[in-house]
Write a protein that binds this DNA or RNA. Structure first.
Lengths: 152, 152
DNA sequence: CTAAATGCCTACTTACAAGATAGGGAATGA
DNA sequence: TCATTCCCTATCTTGTAAGTAGGCATTTAG
């Protein structure tokens, strides 16, 4: 199961990306719409801003807007911000590889091999599908700019 | 990341399944071979026994053997024993479905739709590949008896 | 100019689960 | 009969999720 934090982040991103261009959405509005604890959501939006995904304006008529286009923000990228590496085993993560402590031979590890298959399959979806796709029903398979095809 | 508990379970199952037929492997032997805390491993093996996957003999020359053939025990089944539902969202689990609390419309939920894709992809691997496959390098795609194609 | 609205930042709390550790009971076979 | 093995339950420690809380900083409408 993904964390509430991540799920709230997706709710927020989808709401912000769906807004008319240039129109900022406040954290209070999102919190109200999805019954998310407001202060908790604020932290999440802040994380998304620090990650370079959102931009914000303060004061009256402030709020959040997309910094990058929604179709360059993949589900995998967002998930990694809040959950860390998505790999089922440390030895399968490309971003933060770590050898398993009880590992005898990585090359011959059946567990690694089988979970590698599974991880590949799910990563292929998560890193390919974007917030923009999700909103516009872009058919699955549409390629992404290379920069956004990172692994975790 | 999967839990240590689950990983240890796979180590143990693979070791037991790889042993000559009828030959029991002790928990101590597995613990030693993979540097797994012995008492911790005992609990895990007990869980696998209660799940009907392993059988055991006590006393001298005791140990564990497979109760069911290794090629009927899928990675997904084992994982569910130790991790609970594998679904990334409660509303995607077939075994223990739960509506998301912040859900407005399940049918129109973009998060559910996208994670559904990803989950399908990984489940297809985890529920198809078995301990037996992993040991014998059975090519991916070999079908399983229907009983073992359960979802979580 | 100022006050309300909004985002920004940090500290804290609470509940639960992972990952063991510990101790002993029960069966088995040499 | 006793060493060996599995069986069962309780306890501990640590970390993290999920949220609460309080206040500062910035912007802009009035």
């Amino acid at each position: 199961m993904i964390s509430n934090k991540a799920k709230y982040a997706f709710r927020a991103l989808l709401a912000i990306a769906a807004a008319p261009v240039g129109e900022a959405i406040t954290s209070a509005e999102i919190a109200r719409r999805y019954t998310i604890p407001h202060k908790f959501l604020e932290q999440i939006l802040l994380d998304l801003k620090k990650a370079g995904i959102l931009d914000s304006r303060r004061g009256k008529s402030g709020g959040y807007v997309m910094l990058r286009p929604a179709d360059t923000v993949s589900f995998g990228e967002v998930l990694r911000i809040f959950e860390g590496p998505l790999a089922p085993l440390p030895c399968l993560s490309r971003q933060s590889y770590r050898r398993c402590e009880d590992c005898v031979s990585e090359a011959n590890c059946e567990i690694r091999r089988e979970f590698g298959r599974s991880y590949d399959a799910s990563r292929q979806v998560l890193d390919a599908r974007t917030i923009g796709d999700a909103l516009t029903n872009t058919p699955f398979g549409t390629p992404l700019p290379l920069d956004d095809r990172r692994a975790g």
